[in-house]
Design a protein around this nucleic acid. Structure first.
Lengths: 186, 186
DNA sequence: TAGATCACTTCAATTTTTGAAGTCAAGAAA
DNA sequence: TTTCTTGACTTCAAAAATTGAAGTGATCTA
C-alpha cells in the first residue's frame, strides 16, 4: 500500500494520518500555528526544502487546510483555514507528549497560555458526556459494523508478501472491539 | 534539513513530530492501540511493507514507545509502553479531526466510549488551571527565551537555498510570542 | 514427516526527498 | 532610468527511502 492510499481506509485515524500525518506536513502546520506566513520563512523555520514545501503547500491548499492569499502581485501569505485551525488539539497533544517524555535540560521550550484565565495550561481531556477525566485506560475505540467489515476484508484478502495461500485464506486475527488498555501492565 | 534532525529542534512539537510524526509510525501506533500485537497482523492491518515495518518497529522500540516480548521461541508480541500509551490523546485528536472534517457517507467509522460512564465521548479540552474550555482561539503558544533564541539563530544563519547574501545577513521575521489565533478570519 | 506459521531479511526497482542553482516579476534605491 | 533586492517559487541531478516479491529458518501441527 502506498501512503496516499492510507486516507482511503475506512478509519478516522487512518484518514487523518493520510491527510496530515506526514512529517513535513505536520511541521508546516506547526509553523502556521506559530504565525509564520511567507514561503521563505516557512522554509527557514522548519528546514524543509523549497521543492517539497511547494508540493506540501499545494496539497494543504487542495485539502482545504491552508489558504493562500496574494498580498501583493506575486507575493503570497499562507493561513490556516478553519479546518486547519481545528488541528490545534493535535498540535497540543504532540506538544504535551513531548513535554512529558522528552528531555529538556534547559527547561521546556514551549508553553500554552489560556488567555482567558491568564495561566499556563496542560492537556486535560474530559468526557463530553459525564465530564470525567478520560485517558487510554478508561476508554475504548469501537469500530462501526461497516468499518469492522472492511477491516476484516482487508486482512483476509490482502496479498501478504511472503504469505502462503493457506494463511491468505484463513485471514488474520481481527478483534471487533478493542480496549484502549493497550499497555501490557496498565 | 533531514527528517531525523527534526527531533533535535528545540521545540516540543517539532520533537514529537520528529519521533512519531512519520506516516507509517503513526499507523503502527494506531494499530497497537487497536490491540494488534503480531508482525504479520500489523502489516496486514496497516498496509505497510514488511521491510519498513521491521525498521519502524525497531525505531519505536529504541525510542521506548514499543516493547517487544517473545511469547514463544522466535515469536514476538508488540505492546505500547507507558510512553507509547501516552500518545493516546494524539490519536484521539486525529480521530476527532477526521470525524469532523472527513466525509463519512456510511457514518463515522470509529467511536470512543468512556467505559466509566458507558457513553460515547468526543474530544473536549479544558484548561488545567481554571477548567474552562480551551481551543486555538483562546490560547497562545509561548516560547521560552532559550527556544526563541535558538529559533532566531536558525532563521538567521540558515543557508537558505537560493538566498542572496543580503537575505541571509538580514534574517527572516521571527515573532517572539505568537497568538494561537492562526486563522485569517477567526 | 510434511506442511504450515511466524517473524522476519534481502534486494532490485521505483519513488521521494534533498539542496544547489536558476527564473521571473515587481518594488526600491541610486 | 538602470540596477539591485526581495519573494516565491521551479528545475534538476544526486542521494535516500520505500515498495513488494521472494526468500530464510526456526518452531509447531496434522
Amino acid at each position: 500500500m502506498r501512503i496516499p492510499d492510507i486516507a482511503t481506509q475506512n478509519c478516522s485515524i487512518a484518514h487523518a494520518i493520510g491527510v496530515v500525518g506526514d512529517t513535513w506536513t505536520l511541521m508546516v502546520v506547526r509553523e502556521l500555528f506559530l504565525g509564520t506566513r511567507r514561503f521563505d520563512d516557512l522554509q527557514l523555520a522548519t528546514g524543509i526544502s523549497p521543492h517539497l514545501l511547494s508540493v506540501r503547500l499545494r496539497e494543504l491548499v487542495a485539502d482545504g487546510i491552508v489558504e493562500r492569499t496574494e498580498y501583493r502581485a506575486g507575493r503570497y501569505e499562507h493561513f490556516l483555514t478553519k479546518k486547519g485551525a481545528d488541528l490545534w488539539p493535535v498540535m497540543f497533544a504532540l506538544l504535551d507528549w513531548a513535554d512529558r517524555w522528552g528531555e529538556w535540560p534547559q527547561g521546556r521550550p514551549v508553553y500554552v497560555r489560556h488567555t482567558e484565565c491568564g495561566k499556563l495550561t496542560k492537556l486535560k481531556l474530559r468526557c463530553s458526556c459525564c465530564d470525567g477525566p478520560i485517558h487510554h485506560a478508561n476508554t475504548r475505540f469501537e469500530g462501526s459494523p461497516g468499518a469492522l467489515a472492511e477491516r476484516q476484508a482487508r486482512m483476509e484478502k490482502a496479498p501478504l508478501a511472503g504469505a502462503t495461500p493457506a494463511r491468505a485464506k484463513r485471514g488474520a486475527t481481527v478483534k471487533g472491539v478493542t480496549r484502549s488498555r493497550a499497555t501490557r501492565n496498565p
